[in-house]
């Protein structure tokens, strides 16, 4: 009963926050509502028995998306003070009927899918059966790396493509609106970083290692690690640079390249494409993916092609 009430509260919160995000009177409030929406979404995932998704949503969906939105907002505000930032909502007589109609449609579809007699998914059953033979406790990591590896490989490519496309846009004026704080530094920031950065690295390594037997994995770990990077940028320890140094470039590409190369090796002795040659390959690829994800997200946040030592660095 209490569980049901809690779920009701979360569901109502989701709806309310979503509505606030799209209609609130200032864009800044909208972003804050959206971030809180993401965190509530993480709660919802935890409630429906999907802790992996809860972690991913909290770290990636709410945390980093929120950070990216805030820094984009700041660039908007700082770039052209003459132009109005937010024109406010448009008047549309059709908006409400269309919204209600599509909501109803999705509701009917969703409820009938939920209450139709579905057999347990064949793919899911096959995964659980096959995982018996592999020493990998977390079936989601199994699906992502062993059975649907090409999805994961291409997904890392999607993240890389988003960065490359954003970098291609940045053009020559990438210096504007850097997210670094202005003004002198307080000693407390240094103290915070001295504690939080090692702790964040520890947590991400733990998440990475845990991903093989309990909730966690490369994406969650990479997002947490990127959080540390965001903190370093905000405190002026590192800053955006025009181009990436060799180390940053290697880190950026490590995940995709190692996945492809390890995936291609079985072909040399007649094996199937992307068949990973053992669990060590899973761990190796996950580690490389963690680094790549973290660096890509940090670069997207910094808004440049690379990283350099910041003014407080």
């Amino acid at each position: 009963m209490i569980g049901f009430l809690l779920d009701g509260l979360i569901a109502a919160g989701l709806v309310g926050l979503a509505y606030q995000a799209v209609t609130s009177r200032s864009l800044f409030r909208g972003i804050i509502h959206f971030v809180v929406f993401g965190l509530t979404m993480a709660l919802a995932w935890a409630r429906v028995g999907a802790p992996d998704l809860a972690m991913a949503e909290a770290a990636i969906g709410a945390g980093l998306t929120g950070a990216l939105m805030l820094v984009a907002y700041r660039r908007l505000v700082e770039d052209r003070r003459d132009a109005p930032v937010d024109p406010g909502p448009a008047k549309s007589r059709l908006a409400l009927p269309i919204a209600i109609g599509s909501g109803l449609l999705v509701g009917v579809i969703g409820l009938s899918a939920l209450f139709s007699d579905v057999e347990p998914g064949q793919a899911g059953q096959a995964v659980l059966a096959d995982l018996q033979q592999v020493d990998l406790g977390n079936p989601i990591t199994g699906v992502l790396l062993l059975y649907r590896g090409i999805d994961t490989l291409l997904e890392v490519a999607v993240l890389l493509t988003a960065f490359l496309a954003a970098r291609a846009l940045a053009g020559s004026e990438s210096g504007t609106g850097s997210p670094t704080t202005q003004g002198p530094e307080t000693p407390m920031v240094g103290a915070l970083l001295a504690v939080v950065i090692p702790l964040t690295v520890l947590v991400s390594v733990h998440l990475l290692r845990a991903g093989s037997y309990e909730p966690g994995g490369a994406f969650q770990a990479g997002a947490v690690l990127a959080g540390a990077g965001v903190l370093l940028i905000l405190s002026g320890r590192i800053a955006a640079a025009e181009t990436a140094g060799l180390l940053v470039r290697m880190g950026l590409l490590a995940g995709l390249v190692s996945f492809i190369l390890i995936g291609l090796t079985p072909l040399l002795h007649g094996g199937p494409l992307l068949a990973l040659p053992g669990l060590w390959a899973v761990y190796f690829i996950e580690t490389a993916m963690m680094v790549s994800i973290a660096i890509t997200l940090v670069l997207l946040f910094a808004g440049g092609g690379g990283l350099k030592r910041g003014k407080h660095g």
Binding site: F4, D7, A44, I98, G107, L111
Partner: peptide, 16 residues
Amino acid sequence: LYVLAAAVLFGVGVYG
């Protein structure tokens, strides 16, 4: 409950 919420969220998204 969450499916219902998802339906309303979709509607809110379309509206937005």
